[in-house]
Write a protein that binds this DNA or RNA. Structure first.
Length: 490
RNA sequence: GGCGACGUACCCAAGUGGUAAGGGAGAGGUCUGCAAAACCUUUAUGCGGCGGUUCGAAUCCGCCCGUCGCCUCCA
C-alpha cells in the first residue's frame, strides 16, 4: 500500500489526493527552458522543486516517467505576433547558426542542473525534433474545426473552446477588453493564438508545411511532445506560475480540442524568485544566473536554500539568506561525518517498515518527514523534521553513552535516504569519502606535529599550525578524548 | 483597469479552527590551554491594521494598508 499523496491542483485551486492514471505509474511533464541564455536562479527553483517531487514519487514506489522539453525554437521577444525569435536574435548578433546558440545554452543548462543535483529527465525532447508531429496536430485541429488558416498563419479559434480560461481564471471577454489592439487583421478574435506562423523573409529557422514555410507557435510543442511520450491524458504537468497563462491555458485548449479527452489531471505551478524583493529582469540589472550564484555558494547550498521554502511560495534570493542556509546545512554535514566515524566499516540497511524508536526515535522523525512530503511536497517541513532529529543525535553522541556502531550506521543510511536520495541536499560520493588519500595523510602528519607541540605546551606553534591549515580550508577539531579530526571546506 | 497570491521574531521560513516547527543571527552558560564543533538556556501573550463569527482564530468572514505576480516572451 502506497503513501497517500496530496497535491495542490491549480486547475481546481485546492489540495487533492493523488490518484494515478495508471496504477503504480506517474507521467509528469514539466516545461523546460528556452535555451538562448544561461539559466538563472528562477530556473533553479523550478527544476529543483520538480526534481524533489519526482524523487519523492519514486521513493514511495511509483514508476515515474519524467519528460521535460528543451525549447529550441519559436519564442518571440515581443508578443505573439511581433519581434524576433530569441534564439535567432542571439545568433544574428554573433553571426552564427541558431543551433550553435541552442547547443551552447542547452549544455550550460544541463551543467547547472547537474551541479544542483537535479536528476536528468527521462526524456528531454526538443521542439525542432518534433516539427512533423506539430504540423500533424495543427492539421488535426483544422480538420476538427478548432483552427483556421490565414495568410500562411494558423490560429486556434478560442471561441470554439468554451473551457478556455479555466486554468488561469481568466475570461475571454476580460482578455479582449483589456487587450492591446491587435495590429494584425487576420485573426478572427484577438484572443486567438498561433499554432503555426509564416516565416518572413530572413527568418532562419523555418520548415515547410501545408501552409508554406514557417515555424510552430509557442504553445504547440508542449502539447505535442507531452502527449507523444505520456499519452493523451497524463498525470501531472508542471511549470512556473508565469506560464499558467497563456501558455498552459493554450496547451489545454489545443490538446483537448484535438483529442476530445482531458489533457492533464493535476497542474502544478511553482512560484517565482525575486532578488532582494523585486522581480529579476535584465533592465533592472538584478539578473542572477546560476553560474553567478555558484561562484559565491556551493550549488548544493543553493539547492538547500530553494527547498527550505515551499515550491508554491515566492522565494526572495539574497546573499544573506543563502549564506544562512549554508550554515544550517553545515550542521547536517557535521552530523553525517560524526555518524560515519561512529559507524566505522559498518553500513546499515534501512527497513522503513520497522524503524527503531531507541535510542533515537527514527520512526517518529520518519513519520514527520513523510507527512510533510506527502502534504503537497512540503520540503521545509521535511527539513525541519530532519533538523529536530539532528539535535537528538548530537545530544546522544555528546552524552557519552555513545550509540553502537550498528545504530550509527543505520542512522547514517536513514538520513542518507531522506536528505540525500530524496531531497538531494547531501553532497554526493566524492565529498563524503574523504578516505585514504595522500591529502589526508599529510593533514594527519600536521595534526601529529601539533599534538606534540600541545603536549609541550607550545601553544603558539600549535595555533599557528591550526590557522595555517585553516587558511587552506582545513578545519581542525579537538575532541574530548584527545584526538583531533579535520574537515575540508570548500 | 481585470485576475490571483502573499504579509508570521533582527533575517529566512513551516503552520489553514485548539492555543506559535525548523534554520541563521544575537545574548548567557557547559566543555576547551585557546579555538572549533556540540549541548543547555534565552529572543513573537503574539502571527500587517481594524472589526466580526466561535467556547476558542495566525488559521474562517468583511473592510483597510502594504508587497508581489499574471494579463505581453519569461521557470
Amino acid at each position: 500500500m502506497k503513501t497517500e499523496i496530496y497535491l495542490f491542483n491549480s486547475l481546481t485551486r485546492q489540495k487533492e489526493k493523488f490518484f494515478p492514471v495508471a496504477e503504480g505509474r506517474v507521467g509528469i511533464y514539466v516545461c523546460g527552458p528556452t535555451v538562448y541564455n544561461h539559466s538563472h536562479i528562477g530556473h533553479g527553483k523550478s527544476y529543483v522543486s520538480f526534481d524533489a517531487i519526482v524523487r519523492f514519487f519514486r521513493f514511495v514506489g511509483y514508476k515515474v516517467l519524467y519528460v521535460q522539453n528543451i525549447t529550441d525554437v519559436g519564442h518571440l521577444t515581443d508578443n505573439a505576433d511581433q519581434g524576433d525569435d530569441k534564439i535567432e536574435k542571439e545568433a544574428k548578433r554573433d553571426k552564427i547558426n541558431p543551433m550553435e546558440i541552442v547547443e551552447t545554452f542547452m549544455r550550460s543548462y544541463f551543467e547547472d542542473m547537474d551541479r544542483l543535483g537535479v536528476i536528468r529527465p527521462d526524456i528531454s525532447p526538443r521542439a525542432t525534433g518534433h516539427i512533423v508531429e506539430q504540423i500533424e496536430l495543427t492539421k488535426k485541429l483544422i480538420k476538427r474545426g478548432y483552427a483556421y488558416e490565414a495568410g500562411g498563419n494558423v490560429y486556434f479559434n478560442v471561441s470554439k473552446f468554451p473551457e478556455y480560461g479555466r486554468l488561469s481564471g481568466k475570461r475571454v471577454e476580460d482578455l479582449v477588453a483589456g487587450a492591446r489592439i491587435d495590429v494584425r487583421s487576420d485573426k478572427k478574435n484577438p484572443a486567438d493564438f498561433a499554432l503555426w506562423k509564416k516565416a518572413e523573409a530572413g527568418h532562419i529557422m523555418r520548415w515547410p508545411s501545408p501552409w508554406g514555410d514557417g515555424f510552430p507557435g509557442w504553445h504547440l510543442e508542449c502539447s505535442t511532445m507531452s502527449m507523444k511520450y505520456l499519452g493523451e491524458s497524463f498525470d501531472i504537468h508542471g511549470g512556473g506560475l508565469d506560464n499558467q497563462f497563456p501558455h498552459h491555458e493554450c496547451e489545454i485548449a489545443q490538446s483537448e480540442a484535438a483529442t476530445g479527452r482531458p489533457f492533464v489531471k493535476y497542474w502544478l505551478h511553482n512560484n517565482m524568485v525575486t532578488v532582494n524583493g523585486t522581480k529579476m529582469s535584465k533592465s533592472l540589472g538584478n539578473f542572477v544566473t546560476l553560474k553567478d550564484a555558484f561562484k559565491k555558494f556551493d550549488p548544493i547550498t543553493v539547492r538547500f536554500f530553494v527547498l527550505q521554502s515551499h515550491y508554491r511560495s515566492p522565494l526572495d534570493y539574497s546573499d544573506d539568506a543563502v549564506e544562512g542556509a549554508g550554515k544550517g546545512l553545515d550542521r547536517l554535514k557535521n552530523v553525517m561525518r560524526e555518524l560515519l566515524d561512529l559507524a566505522g566499516d559498518k553500513r546499515g540497511e534501512v527497513d522503513f517498515a520497522s524503524l527503531p524508536e531507541e535510542p533515537i526515535n527514527l520512526r517518529r522523525y520518519y513519520n514527520e518527514w513523510l507527512a510533510a512530503m506527502a502534504d503537497d511536497f512540503n520540503t521545509p517541513g521535511a527539513i525541519a523534521a530532519i533538523f529536530e532529529m539532528l539535535k537528538d543525535i548530537n545530544t546522544s553522541i555528546g552524552s557519552g553513552n555513545a550509540m553502537t556502531s550498528e545504530f550509527a550506521a543505520l542512522t547514517y543510511s536513514f538520513i542518507d535516504v531522506l536528505a540525500g536520495d530524496v531531497l538531494g541536499i547531501l553532497p554526493t560520493d566524492d565529498n563524503r569519502s574523504a578516505g585514504k588519500s595522500i591529502e589526508s595523510d599529510l593533514v594527519n602528519l600536521f595534526i601529529g606535529l601539533r599534538s606534540d607541540a600541545r603536549k609541550g605546551r607550545d601553544f603558539k606553534l600549535a595555533d599557528s599550525i591550526r590557522s595555517e591549515l585553516q587558511s587552506m580550508g582545513v578545519i581542525l577539531e579537538d575532541k574530548k578524548d584527545g584526538t583531533t579530526t579535520f574537515k575540508i571546506v570548500r
